[in-house]
């Protein structure tokens, strides 16, 4: 029986077809053999499924969107903390990380809420637009990329790139262009939505592989599990995946974490080319939604993250089961209108 009691607040309860990582993180935490974890859900929307999963989430509170600003979020967390006495907070969305990284010292000092997040520098330098510099700085291969600011620059791209190219927005969206005309078309479409610059990246042929990893902030990799997606939804999300044996990929991961002293969880999206080269496509500075595969394969990253947040020393995982699979499924919960009413009008359930 786990003995040590701890209260953990978790965001990302949107366990939908493009899921947030909250529920899998919670499952990992509840699997802990050492800790008796009480979960406080933090939600942005009254229809996030996790709100209604009472066997996993003891109580959920609505919180203001990241765009409302730190002052609003702090005030809400103060209120929640006065009721629930939170020990650790685990934010799981890209969009909320900036605020939480900024708030982390104040949360700990004033409210006693601990967290274990990347530093602001790490968070900033792994942005898509900076990925080339990031790769160069930490010795990781990154597909050649360039920021462009107008369609006039597309004509001269062939000096450094060969089609197809990936046309990417600053924050979101990416399309593969096979001709300058297509590139211009995507430039206009994506820039209209996300603004400038547009990032042009050399398309790399190969297989996408992903790693979920956890760094201790001193350069040590606490855990790392590589996975290949087996079924992909139309939103590009894994619907089934399998753990891989890939020492080279693990070496790259350890190198990146060692050189960058990465703190907290991250997901590396890599392309393995047919020649066996690895290119880093993107780093997500948080736990991926498929994290429960790592737990199932023997590395409970959420639990390790909790321990590090609590200031405990955590021994790196040395093993995971190769060939473990996850198969995602959807499930219709039956809920009462009364519950929807409560979370909608009172902001807590």
């Amino acid at each position: 029986m786990p003995s040590k009691k701890v209260t953990v607040a978790v965001t990302g309860l949107n366990n939908v077809d493009s899921p947030g990582p909250g529920i899998p993180v919670i499952r990992g935490l509840l699997d802990s053999k050492e800790y008796d974890v009480r979960i406080i859900g933090l939600s942005y929307d009254a229809l996030e499924p996790g709100i209604y999963m009472h066997e996993l989430v003891a109580k959920t509170y609505q919180i203001p969107l990241p765009s409302a600003g730190i002052a609003s979020i702090m005030e809400r967390l103060k209120h929640i903390n006065s009721v629930e006495k939170i020990d650790v907070i685990i934010p799981n969305f890209d969009a909320e990380l900036y605020n939480f990284i900024k708030m982390a010292p104040v949360l700990e000092k004033e409210l006693g809420i601990k967290s274990f997040l990347p530093t602001m520098e790490q968070f900033e330098e792994r942005h898509k637009a900076n990925l080339s510099d990031f790769g160069e700085k930490y010795g990781i291969k990154v597909p050649k990329s360039k920021m462009i600011f107008s369609t006039a620059e597309i004509a001269s791209l062939t000096k450094d790139f060969t089609y197809p190219l990936v046309v990417k927005g600053k924050f979101y969206d990416a399309s593969v262009a096979y001709s300058p005309e297509q590139a211009a078309q995507y430039f206009n479409k994506i820039s209209a939505k996300w603004g400038l610059p547009i990032i042009i990246q050399q398309f790399t042929y190969g297989t996408e592989v992903n790693v979920t990893a956890l760094g201790d902030g001193n350069g040590n990799t606490i855990g790392a599990v590589p996975m290949r997606k087996q079924v992909i939804t139309d939103k590009g999300k894994a619907w089934a995946g399998i753990t891989l044996e890939d020492e080279e990929l693990l070496n790259i991961t350890r190198k990146l974490i060692r050189n960058s002293k990465w703190r907290g969880p991250c997901e590396l999206e890599m392309i393995k080319t047919n020649d066996g080269e690895y290119f880093l496509i993107e780093i997500n500075p948080r736990t991926p939604a498929w994290i429960y595969l790592a737990v199932g394969a023997g590395q409970n990253h959420p639990e390790a993250l909790l321990k590090m947040a609590l200031g405990e020393k955590v021994k790196p995982f040395e093993h995971y089961d190769i060939g473990k699979m996850f198969i995602r499924y959807s499930y219709d919960m039956i809920c009462d209108l009364k519950e929807f009413e409560t979370i909608s009008t009172l902001g807590e359930l």
Binding site: L65, R76, G347
Partner: peptide, 13 residues
């Protein structure tokens, strides 16, 4: 509206 936070904790606004 789902997807839009309205009043909880938005007091400072």
């Amino acid at each position: 509206n789902t997807g839009l936070m309205n009043k909880f904790g938005m007091r400072t606004e």
